[in-house]
């Protein structure tokens, strides 16, 4: 069973996750601006910037994060920002909520000058996240777990990060067992997505380089 302390932890994370989303004005821009490759690139860059700001605000609310060494906080965010963004985008795109303008977002991504080689694994990832039908609690916890990955480059005190990540993994594991009693592999599937995210993060660096050249 999930203990009271774990319930509190989950509530804090979920509330912070829901409170910190890309501003609606930004989402509306998806429909307003023009659809040239350059315009799409600029708009996606602007959205990514906003998403990083929102991600940092969410992260500040993860219990214990602000007590970590300041440079370690930056290393964790720098190492995970791209992965956290892919997770959030996957959730937005698979939710198909009308006010998120998901079709417009998908069209802009597809016509932004990004190479097929990168786009295919990215949309495959979005699809694989969609298939999991994650609950909000699972999404929020998985994002927190991604951010609190101890082995990011330049993290000095990995043990301090592990001490924050472990309780999140424990709650998520229990939550998965409770919510998906018919799917004992569900928790393992979620963790598998984290491995996929790492691969995407790696591609992303290469993709940015080729994008810049184009």
């Amino acid at each position: 069973a999930i203990t009271k302390d774990q319930q509190v932890l989950m509530k804090v994370i979920v509330e912070a996750y829901n409170r910190h989303q890309i501003p609606q004005d930004m989402a509306k821009k998806l429909l307003q601006e023009q659809y040239s490759a350059e315009e799409n690139f600029l708009l996606l860059t602007e959205m990514a910037t906003s998403q990083v700001q929102v991600l940092v605000e969410f992260t500040k609310n993860i219990p214990g994060f602000l007590s970590l060494d300041h440079e370690d906080q930056i290393a964790l965010l720098k190492g995970s920002a791209v992965e956290a963004m892919f997770l959030r985008s996957a959730q937005v795109l698979s939710s198909k909520k009308p006010n998120c303008h998901t079709d417009a977002l998908e069209e802009r991504i597809r016509k932004s000058g990004m190479s097929e080689e990168f786009m295919t694994p990215m949309f495959n990832f979005y699809k694989s996240i969609g298939k999991l039908h994650m609950m909000q609690e699972e999404q929020a916890l998985l994002t927190a777990i991604t951010i609190l990955t101890p082995d990011r480059p330049y993290v000095k005190d990995q043990q301090a990060v592990e001490r924050l990540q472990e309780p999140m993994l424990d709650v998520l594991r229990k939550l998965c067992a409770l919510q998906h009693p018919q799917e004992p592999q569900y928790f393992a599937h979620l963790l598998g997505r984290l491995t996929e995210l790492r691969t995407l993060n790696h591609y992303h660096a290469e993709m940015l380089t080729s994008w810049r050249v184009n």
Binding site: V52, V54, E57, K60, K78, A81, L208
Partner: peptide, 21 residues
């Protein structure tokens, strides 16, 4: 963010500031 340097700048600023205010 178009570069890693840009990303770090955004993170540092966001860590110091407060979007909620």
């Amino acid at each position: 963010p178009a570069s890693n340097l840009g990303l770090e700048d955004i993170i540092r600023k966001a860590l110091m500031g407060n979007l909620e205010e």
